[in-house]
């Protein structure tokens, strides 16, 4: 704040993007809005829009949340997500502190890393549950219900989860449908439980029955690509390097066309208080990775061999390389 000449900043969170607020005040609020005010001298005040949140946190309540904002704050983290009526209440157009706060959040503290390790452990156990209960005849949403129940039973606050099932016709993941699993299906998932505010992720593919030659061949490519990035990641390399390492494997095998936006989204991303933190792992992102950052590398994409396939682990960047935080076996799961 001193560097920027800011006397005070606001950190805003809403029900979708709680992360700017929780980066200062790690309270899992259940109402619509929360706001923290931090002065340069370190004083913090907190306001909630929901009376239950305010009572639990012994904090100020402001049901008419426009009144929580007033002219005077130097900058706001989460400004971009704020409703315009809140921004207008701040007086002259406020400065965004979002990028600065996100940069501070990228390198995790020891306590944050501990929470992410707990989330990784839960992701591993959640995936184990996923494999245990998935079977032909079950519907996608029923499997998600089982996994969600397991994660909540074991302390997850939330969970970001996508799923898909089928064969070469599957081009991406989405929320679960009523589709029933069939023998031979690839069942893919991104599982991302949240513990004490922090997300960790695992991506795996399960084949129901004996995998086909094409599914095995596809998985070998995904595994080689993910390992190439994991072997490379250390402080000083860029997000682009990590993406290129994965995409080059697909190119080597003749599948370079499937590394672009038509068939995939990103080759990974950072993790923390939001499940899809920046920088994304993409060939045009030159952000230099640092010790203490937590990333997932996942070469998830569509291939004509197998349909959409996923494979990825959460990595903690260490002084000289990285540590894989997931313990789940790196293989194509079959059942």
């Amino acid at each position: 704040m001193a560097e920027r000449g800011w006397d005070s900043i606001l950190l805003y969170g809403n029900a979708w993007r709680k992360d700017p607020f929780r980066s200062l005040v790690n309270i899992n609020f259940s109402g619509d809005h929360a706001l923290a005010r931090l002065s340069r001298s370190g004083e913090i005040s907190v306001t909630f829009s929901d009376p239950w949140d305010a009572e639990v946190a012994c904090a100020a309540l402001q049901p008419d949340f426009v009144k929580a904002f007033s002219p005077g704050a130097s900058a706001i983290a989460g400004l971009e997500f704020m409703e315009e009526r809140f921004v207008a209440a701040c007086g002259s157009l406020p400065v965004s502190a979002t990028a600065d706060v996100e940069e501070l959040r990228r390198v995790k503290t020891a306590e944050e890393i501990e929470f992410i390790k707990q989330a990784c452990d839960l992701a591993d156990r959640g995936y184990q549950r996923f494999v245990e209960v998935a079977e032909p005849g079950m519907r996608e949403f029923e499997l998600v219900a089982e996994v969600e129940a397991f994660l909540k039973t074991n302390g997850a606050e939330d969970n970001f989860m996508l799923i898909a099932s089928g064969g070469t016709e599957v081009v991406g993941m989405k929320p679960p449908t009523e589709r029933k699993f069939k023998q031979g299906d690839s069942v893919t998932t991104e599982l991302t439980p949240q513990v004490n505010g922090y997300y960790a992720q695992i991506c795996r593919t399960l084949v129901l029955g004996e995998p086909s030659r094409e599914q095995l061949k596809a998985f070998d490519i995904f595994s080689e690509a993910q390992c190439a990035a994991q072997d490379l990641i250390k402080p000083g390399i860029t997000a682009a390097d990590a993406a290129r390492a994965q995409n080059d494997i697909f190119r080597k095998h003749g599948y370079g066309d499937y590394t672009g936006a038509k068939y995939t989204r990103v080759r990974g991303h950072c993790l923390g208080l939001y499940p899809d933190e920046t920088p994304h792992i993409l060939e045009d992102i030159d952000y230099v990775l640092k010790q203490g950052m937590v990333v997932i590398v996942h070469p998830n994409t569509y291939l004509p061999l197998s349909g959409y396939m996923v494979f990825g682990d959460t990595l903690l960047i260490t002084e000289s390389g990285n540590t894989r935080l997931n313990k789940t076996e790196k293989k194509l799961f079959t059942k």
Binding site: N28, W52, E55, E142, A145, E148, K152
Partner: peptide
């Protein structure tokens, strides 16, 4: 976990659960 399983199996799209004990305001688990 019990409530998640029952509600999502029944077709719930999303769920927010809050628990009150000892006269406290309802809050997340």
């Amino acid at each position: 976990g019990l409530l998640e399983l029952a509600c999502r199996r029944a077709g719930a799209e999303d769920l927010v659960l809050l628990f009150g004990t000892n006269d406290s305001a309802p809050r997340p688990a």
